[in-house]
């Protein structure tokens, strides 16, 4: 029982103190689990990240579930994941409710009009980073163009784009092997 509570509290703290999740929480996890409590080695933690990255779902939750399961089975996985999402649930629910009240405030409207431009600029910057780390060579370029065409011409949903590109990648991979 102690372990479940510990897992919940650990990931609650991580959810509360890291912005962005994913790799942003790696230093905190390393500090807590590797350096202080010695529950994991650094290699084990990095392995979990590698698997968290190649399985469905967002990395932060995958890693939390993984560590929780390794420490205390299914209960641990659930406790860690609930701990991780709890701060978001509280903070975001409060903000969403408050903003709904004040959304018609003139200054808030101005501020958000500015913020939206900031969001588009951030996305544009993320796209450049993603492009540099993910599009290497002609095959990647072709898969990128294929996805963009499917989106533009047939307005397929994101789910279908993922399924079709996965199939295309598998076919290209198998052909390249022969």
């Amino acid at each position: 029982m102690q372990t479940l509570k510990d897992l919940f509290v650990l990931f609650f703290k991580i959810g509360l103190f890291t912005f962005g999740g994913g790799y942003a929480m790696l230093p905190l996890l390393k500090d807590e689990l590797v350096s202080r409590k010695r529950l994991l080695t650094e290699d084990e933690l990095l392995d979990m990240y590698a698997i968290g990255q190649c399985t469905p779902g967002i990395i932060a939750i995958n890693v939390a579930t993984f560590i929780g399961y390794r420490r205390a089975g299914v209960g641990g996985a659930v406790a860690a994941t609930l701990g991780m999402i709890f701060p978001s649930l509280i903070i975001i629910t409060l903000i969403a409710m408050i903003l709904k009240q004040y959304m018609y405030n003139r200054y808030l409207t101005y501020a958000f009009a500015g913020v939206r431009i900031g969001v588009v600029a951030l996305i544009a910057s993320v796209v450049i980073d993603l492009w540099q780390s993910n599009i290497r060579g002609y095959t990647d370029g072709a898969l990128f163009v294929l996805a963009l065409l499917l989106l533009g011409l047939f307005s397929l949903s994101a789910v279908w784009i993922v399924i079709i590109s996965a199939a295309a990648a598998l076919i290209i991979g198998e052909c390249a092997k022969k």
Binding site: V127, L130, W131, N134, I135, D140, G141, L143, F144, V145, L146, A147, L148, L151, A158, I161, V162, I164, S165, A166, A168, A169, L170, I172, G173
Partner: peptide, 9 residues
């Protein structure tokens, strides 16, 4: 293979 598509998305 999914990664380039994620960038496109």
């Amino acid at each position: 293979g999914i990664r380039p598509a994620v960038v496109a998305l």
